[in-house]
Write a protein that binds this DNA or RNA. Structure first.
Lengths: 155, 155
DNA sequence: TATTGTTATACTCTATAACTATA
DNA sequence: TATAGTTATAGAGTATAACAATA
């Protein structure tokens, strides 16, 4: 057994050295995602939408009548994971699945009237969120640059 | 009931309009995180470490003997969630919890010899990952700018 | 009273395999 | 054979409340 008192400094709990960790893209992206989720859910608490649900509503509004798998693929969500998401939206009467002529396998997706109403509220929430991002980034050029760098990294 | 054939175009499945969705920071960050996790786990598959575990090992190596709650706070991980993470690392004999003199509540964290060995391999994996990021971003200035913008947004 | 570690629970997102019905 | 939707399971991350032991 080593003696612990040689290594543990009980009298001066100074700040931890974290330079190696904090300079890694890995660590910064992990922390950023956590804070992103936290802030998003705060802004969207009134409309009760998750990030993926909001994107789905917005995309269906832009492309009514498209197949479930087309919407999922454009969002970058696996078909399998998109099912429960759509079940949730449909259970809240925000979207509906209609049958497609000549292909009884597919479902065409539409927003309901209340889905369009909620999307209006959600767009205001997103505008608030985007405005906060814009302010933190320090202006439109910085925002465009951030999105461009993000696209280079993960586009 | 509306007629579906008026809205569903079965003959020309052109690409979906996604400008509204794709221009939002929300959507881009959601997609980026998914790809980040996928790439990270690919690079770290040999050492079998998750992002949070790698950061924990690196931080403990820089600050041996610190309390569990200090390491967790510096990493931005809740105490409660850090327990199972440390249980996992300790179960693999990569870290150990030692008792602290004058405070029987606390655990001081240390890397074991095999923990230090694995961290060496993990640092090589991270160097590969960071090099890939650097190449995608297009150079050190772009990398620094990306980290700076990320810190403005979520720091 | 406050802190440390712990347990339990729940929520968001993701990946994968396998199944049913239909094309 | 291939596609669309579905189910089930597993894993990564997060937050919160409550508890025992200790300070």
């Amino acid at each position: 057994m080593e003696k612990i008192s040689e290594t543990y400094n009980a009298t001066s709990p100074e700040a931890l050295a974290a330079s190696t960790v904090s300079q890694s893209v890995v660590h910064q992206l992990r922390r950023a995602h956590g804070r992103f989720m936290h802030r998003f859910l705060h802004h969207f608490s009134a409309v009760n939408l998750r990030p993926a649900e909001y994107s789905a509503l917005a995309l269906i509004a832009e492309n009514p009548g498209r197949k479930q798998s087309e919407i999922a693929a454009t969002l970058g969500i696996q078909r399998a994971n998109f099912v429960s998401l759509m079940n949730d939206l449909e259970g809240r009467c925000l979207t509906e699945r209609r049958s497609v002529p000549n292909d009884r396998r597919s479902h065409a997706l539409y927003l309901t009237a209340s889905g369009q109403n909620l999307l209006s509220d959600a767009r205001r929430a997103e505008a608030d969120f985007e405005a906060e991002c814009l302010e933190r980034l320090g202006g439109t050029p910085a925002r465009e640059q951030f999105l461009a760098l993000l696209a280079r990294l993960f586009g």
